[in-house]
Write a protein that binds this DNA or RNA. Structure first.
Lengths: 334, 334
DNA sequence: AGCGCTCCCGTGAACGTTCACGGGAGCGCT
DNA sequence: AGCGCTCCCGTGAACGTTCACGGGAGCGCT
């Protein structure tokens, strides 16, 4: 119980254990790593000494000599957003299959956290996967020399890979389905706050045009259930004859479902709703959500696969192969 | 484009960059870490050489010399289970505030994955937080020398800390509320598959007894929404006069809500439902779920706080301080 | 007695980086 | 001319572990 007076407590190393047990470094190493070539009583003595001293091996020293661990950094804006939860779970699963470690960073949807995270990450992981909203040049600056795989984001620099989400056919199928069900007045709840309209809206517009449907009834929604509810209210107030809505994502759609019930519109009879993402959460609401569904497991697996190729330098996939297609999956809401 | 024939491609080190740029190691280090004492043109030359060679610094070598990073391992059974998502998010937030890194391991609810995870983890992190179902002696064996904080699990060895979840008062308040609303026939959907009844059921039984309520109407439920729905069906078939249910957790409660709607029982008029956990998800369903709510952020913060104390060895909290109390939070389902 | 084998154990070197320190070149000033 | 200062840059040592190798003790066999 005597602490070294004043000075910073020196780290306990394998030498300390060796001295305490009266053996050499190598013998301590043998005991700790369950190797052969050590007497049982010696091993026990070493283990006791290690425990008594509170010895913890340095993962850095160990990692330096046997270079066999890869760690990747997974950066997501908000783990509590179910979409990112699914992506994270998928990435974890794919990484685990390779025996990789995954350090998860939640940037809390704040751009300034991104840079801090990147700075901190760059000296701790072998590669980075995730969502970033910061400019490419900053991203490049902080990830110098590391493989980077972006998800659902366009990139211009050849420095990065990115997984593209292709929902064009899926959205087309969604509109086709609504039309087949007799809907002619179809609105959209888009993602609010972006300067330009979303790509998902473009897909919607294109598909609507193919069926001669007016694609002008669009309201921006905050990316939350409450936001979806509010947006639906606004949309229906402006266009009471709307009988179907397509939404930017499932969270917004779920908010719309809830709001429809409050407005006394039953789903899908009075109002059909189709979301985007295909969250597992969509199965929990009533009626189960119809959605242009993404295979998040494939998304995660693809991202990790590309990281593996970039790390080894063999056959990295090109943009054409880094695509996950979304497909219409009917629940009961449309 | 010439690859070294046959042999394993040697790692590119700071020496290679130094030689290529015609400078010393130290100068390369200065360029890479944005230090002073280097000429701008030299720095650029080094950076170019590093990029051309595809140089990536070794985090192990760097970590070995400047020992300033702590990494903790977070082990959870299933990230897609919303409860664990919230706990994970809370732990990430608390760790981020300290500048720590968090490696997340999803054991996919399989005990055999736990041991593999532990083995792999032990050489990669400074401490472990999470859920484990394996026996304590195995846990001890694989975490030798590392601080371990368990969540929501009893432990007997002084080797571990654990965060206890205390829902006794909260469940009592839930039953009191139901009684005050005029309910006399209250059932419970417990967690299915455990040998012994859950602690949450004990709390329910105790509280019911205090109000002279029969606590015998209990059905086991699989820990999923579907499981909750099926269990409610079974319960109501056996006891049609039940007007209120308390559930093991919110996921089961949400399944019960859905099933109630299918059975034509409106909530809360015909059937009151109170869950446990207080998930954010509960606000997305209709009506919003009443629940004996846990402060998951506090849970995560407390776990990380204890890890910090254990790592430094100063004032680790005792069992009495490692408690998170659950409180009744009314939505609209009861 | 000598040989070979097994069982243990220890010593130097290496992993790849940063720290501490030393020192040369060049310039301005007295 | 000499001094001091700034600007750059390089060399040895250290971080804490594992690998490769050497070697002694003890035993059984011929």
């Amino acid at each position: 119980m005597v602490s070294s007076s004043g000075t910073e407590p020196r780290r306990i190393t394998i030498h300390d254990v060796a001295r305490s047990a009266g053996v050499s470094r190598q013998t301590v190493s043998r005991a700790l790593n369950d190797k052969d070539e050590i007497d049982d009583s010696t091993k026990q003595r070493v283990l006791d000494a290690a425990r008594a001293l509170g010895y913890r091996p340095s993962r850095f020293a160990r990692g330096l000599v046997r270079q066999d661990t890869t760690t990747i950094g997974l950066v997501i804006p908000d783990l509590l957003n179910p979409f990112f939860t699914e992506v994270a779970a998928a990435a974890l699963e794919a990484a685990r299959a390779r025996g990789w470690h995954v350090v998860v960073y939640d940037t809390a949807d704040r751009a300034e956290e991104e840079l801090g995270t990147l700075q901190v990450i760059s000296s701790q992981v072998d590669a980075v996967v995730g969502y970033f909203s910061c400019p490419e040049d900053e991203l490049e600056l902080f990830t110098r020399g590391m493989p980077v795989v972006l998800i659902g984001r366009e990139h211009h620099s050849a420095r990065f890979s990115s997984i593209r989400i292709d929902g064009e056919e899926g959205v087309h199928a969604a509109v086709a389905h609504l039309v087949a069900e007799g809907h002619t007045r179809i609105g959209m709840l888009d993602h609010y706050g972006r300067a330009e309209p979303s790509i998902r809206r473009e897909w919607f517009t294109t598909a609507a045009a193919a069926y001669g449907i007016d694609a002008g009834m669009v309201v921006g929604a905050d990316q939350s259930a409450d936001g979806g509810g509010a947006a639906l209210k606004t949309l229906l107030a402006a266009h009471p004859d709307v009988t179907a809505v397509f939404t930017f994502n499932d969270i917004i759609a779920i908010g719309a479902l809830r709001e429809a019930r409050r407005l006394g519109r039953s789903v899908p009879q009075d109002l059909a709703v189709i979301g985007f993402d295909g969250l597992q959460l969509g199965a929990l609401v009533e009626p189960p959500l119809s959605s242009v569904a993404l295979d998040t497991r494939k998304l995660g697996a693809l991202a990790i696969d590309q990281v593996a190729r970039l790390l080894t330098g063999v056959n990295p996939l090109g943009a054409d192969d880094l695509v996950v297609r979304a497909e219409l999956r009917l629940g009961g809401s449309a």
